[in-house]
């Protein structure tokens, strides 16, 4: 065991893991966290807390992680390289560990161009690959990037993202291999809609033995409506929404589209449970946290295991 986080223990015990996601509010109201977090208690093994997601200023991920710990939820601290240099990143990692945070998800971060402060100077001192290596070096060698010995070593279960739907496709599995080489313990994929492409990517990962070297979680985001599906298809770079799902949503009455989206998500999870190399699902119900229960119940993922 590397970090003894609940998520790591669930994986280690051979269970199919489930993680959720919580987007912090654009304000200082801690009650929002309690309200959103409440929807996830008992349903997931760990909760990702986004870090200024889509480059929009929100309550600090680390603070929200601590609030979730107080609620009995295990957080997964998302950390982007866009907003901090190696000094701030390492300082934050040490602080996060001191606060009891055991999972970290290492990300490059969306470019600020589409965020709420496009005038900002971005940092990108290190990239997501190097952030993984930083976490690993701190944990396994007890050292900072500059080789300085730490007094008190942080123990992280190290995560990263993978997007099988971005280009060039043939490089995507190489990038996964690089993340493993850099030291990643688990991967959460981008939202999956194009199942064919995802199966191909998983096949490549299995063939290279990568699924033996880290836990891979499939990203699932329920589609709320035809409008949302079209938006994701057209405007979110690196997302691939096939017409087939849009046709299914269109095939039902408008007020039933959400229910159909949830049905699709459940079917996807059921396929993921059977897919070789998949160790869990990451359910990102974007601003729809109250539906996570319906999804994980429908997919037969409850009750969540108690592991020690």
């Amino acid at each position: 065991m590397k970090a003894q986080s609940n998520l790591e223990r669930v994986f280690a015990a051979g269970h199919f893991a489930v993680t959720g996601e919580l987007g912090p509010p654009r304000g200082a109201d801690a009650e929002v966290i309690k309200e959103k977090g409440q929807y996830l208690v008992g349903l997931v093994d760990s909760v990702n807390v986004t870090d200024n997601q889509t480059a929009v200023v929100r309550m600090a991920s680390m603070a929200v992680c601590r609030l979730l710990l107080d609620m009995g939820l295990e957080p997964n601290l998302q950390m982007v390289c866009r907003d901090r240099n190696r000094l701030a990143i390492q300082a934050d990692l040490l602080g996060a560990s001191a606060l009891g945070i055991k999972n970290v998800l290492c990300l490059s971060g969306d470019h600020q161009k589409f965020g709420d402060h496009p005038q900002a100077k971005n940092v990108f001192d290190i990239d997501s690959m190097q952030l993984i290596a930083t976490c690993k070096k701190m944990r396994d060698e007890g050292k900072l990037i500059n080789e300085h010995e730490l007094e008190g070593v942080p123990h992280f279960f190290i995560g990263a993202a993978a997007n099988p739907f971005a280009d060039p496709f043939d490089f995507r599995v190489t990038r996964l291999a690089k993340k493993i080489e850099a030291g990643v313990d688990f991967i959460q994929s981008q939202c999956i809609y194009n199942m064919d492409k995802f199966r191909t990517w998983m096949q490549q990962a299995n063939d290279l033995g990568l699924t033996e070297k880290c836990y891979i979680m499939a990203g699932i985001t329920p589609l709320k409506s035809v409008g949302m599906a079209r938006y994701m298809q057209k405007f979110v770079p690196g997302l691939d929404v096939p017409e087939e799902y849009i046709a299914r949503l269109k095939g039902v009455e408008k007020k039933e589209q959400g229910a159909e989206g949830i049905k699709i998500a459940i079917e996807q999870i059921q396929e993921m449970k059977e897919m070789k190399g998949i160790s869990g699902v990451h359910v990102m119900a974007i601003e729809w946290e109250e539906k996570v229960e319906e999804i994980v119940t429908g997919a037969g993922l409850l009750p969540r295991p108690e592991v020690s």
Binding site: C81, S108, D167, R175, G238
Partner: peptide, 13 residues
């Protein structure tokens, strides 16, 4: 745009 050194990010399309 992000000065990445380890390959295209998930936004390459």
């Amino acid at each position: 745009a992000k000065s990445l050194l380890n390959g295209p990010c998930g936004g390459s399309s």
